Simulated scan of single mutants.
Amino acid sequence: MIAVTAAIIVHCVGRLRARRPPKPEPESQETNVTEGPWYYCLKHHAVEPYDGCKSEDRLGPYETYAEASDALEKVRERNEAWDAQEEDVDEAGDKDADWNPFS
């Protein structure tokens, strides 16, 4: 009984696969690099179009594919600039440097 059932399932699945239309060829990322918006996925470390991962896992939007591919470098540069700015404020003795909203 199990062998007959397995044979029927294999036969039916084979027929279903035979009726499926062929999958379209995936578009090359290079063909649509100008159409945006583009996002950099932090989960997959890849550039994705709008229909990609969740917003919480992405940086963007960026207008071009190239901008999105440089997202981590841009984040690194901004963090370094902000860190340098904080050091300048601390060294200048700014009165707001020790400001705490909870005190």
Rank of each mutant, 00 (worst) to 15 (best):
A18V: 03
G60Q: 07
Q29H: 05
S69E: 11
V75P: 10
Y50P: 00
S69W: 05
R15E: 15
Y39L: 11
C12K: 04
G52N: 02
V47F: 02
A81R: 14
T64M: 09
S69T: 03
R76C: 04
Q29Y: 05
G52F: 04
E67T: 01
T31V: 13
V10A: 08
G36Y: 12
V47E: 04
V47C: 09
G36V: 12
E63K: 09
S69V: 02
R17A: 13
E25S: 12
G52H: 02
N32S: 09
H11A: 13
E80K: 14
E67R: 11
L72P: 00
H44W: 02
S69G: 07
D70M: 12
Y40I: 07
Y65G: 04
I8R: 00
E48Q: 15
I8D: 02
E35H: 08
P37T: 06
T31H: 02
R19Y: 07
T31A: 10
D57K: 14
P37Y: 09
P61D: 14
Y39T: 04
V4C: 00
I9D: 12
S69Q: 12
S69F: 05
E67A: 15
A46P: 00
T5M: 03
V47N: 01
E73M: 11
N79F: 03
H44F: 07
A46Y: 01
G14E: 13
E25H: 11
L59P: 06
D57Q: 15
V33S: 08
E67N: 11
W38V: 04
I8N: 01
D51G: 06
K54N: 04
A6Q: 10
A7K: 00
K54F: 06
K43A: 13
E73H: 13
E25I: 15
E77Q: 15
E25M: 11
D70A: 13
E35F: 12
K74D: 09
D51C: 09
C12Y: 08
S55T: 13
Y50N: 08
E27V: 15
R15W: 13
P37M: 14
E30V: 06
A66F: 12
K54L: 09
E63A: 14
K43Q: 13
G36T: 08
E48G: 08
K23P: 12
A66S: 11
E80F: 06
A6F: 02
C53I: 02
H44V: 06
E56T: 13
A18R: 02
Y40E: 04
A7L: 01
R76Q: 12
V10F: 04
A3G: 01
N32Q: 07
Y40C: 05
V4P: 00
P26N: 01
E27G: 13
V4I: 10
P26K: 00
I8W: 00
Y39S: 07
R20H: 07
D51P: 00
